[in-house]
């Protein structure tokens, strides 16, 4: 399986948030995205982490999370069935690196 994202800094955050796929999530307001041919660069101004989102659908998913009642609903609406588990895992990693947060 090709990886959907790379996180440059592997240090664990102070309190890794638990990812609840049935909860409501959004792109962390402290994170800026810059579209690239491979997906997007994401930069967290708080943790100073640079994250590479390595697929366009992942960028669309992350950017539109706040329009859905839950992450699971967003995945169901935007991602084809065979890839949903991968995208769920990618969101969990993005939650752990605080790129997305519960709201």
């Amino acid at each position: 399986m090709w990886r959907l994202l790379s996180v440059t800094d592997t240090r664990a955050p102070h309190s890794p948030p638990v990812f609840d796929i049935d909860g409501s999530w959004r792109l962390n307001p402290q994170v800026a995205l810059r579209g690239e041919a491979f997906g997007a660069l994401a930069y967290h101004y708080g943790t100073r982490r640079l994250i590479f989102l390595k697929s366009r659908p992942l960028v669309d998913l992350v950017s539109s999370l706040d329009r859905y009642a839950s992450a699971a609903e967003a995945i169901a609406a935007l991602i084809p069935v065979p890839e949903r588990a991968d995208y769920g895992r990618a969101l969990a990693r993005l939650a752990a690196s605080e790129v997305i947060d519960a709201h």
Binding site: R3, R34, E36, F38, L50, F52, K54
Partner: peptide, 22 residues
């Protein structure tokens, strides 16, 4: 390459429209 796509490293060696940092 990963599944025929360019790897991130390949993308970077071809340059981006803006620097990551400078």
């Amino acid at each position: 390459t990963e599944n025929g796509r360019p790897t991130l490293k390949e993308r970077f060696t071809r340059g981006l429209d803006a620097p990551i940092c400078l």
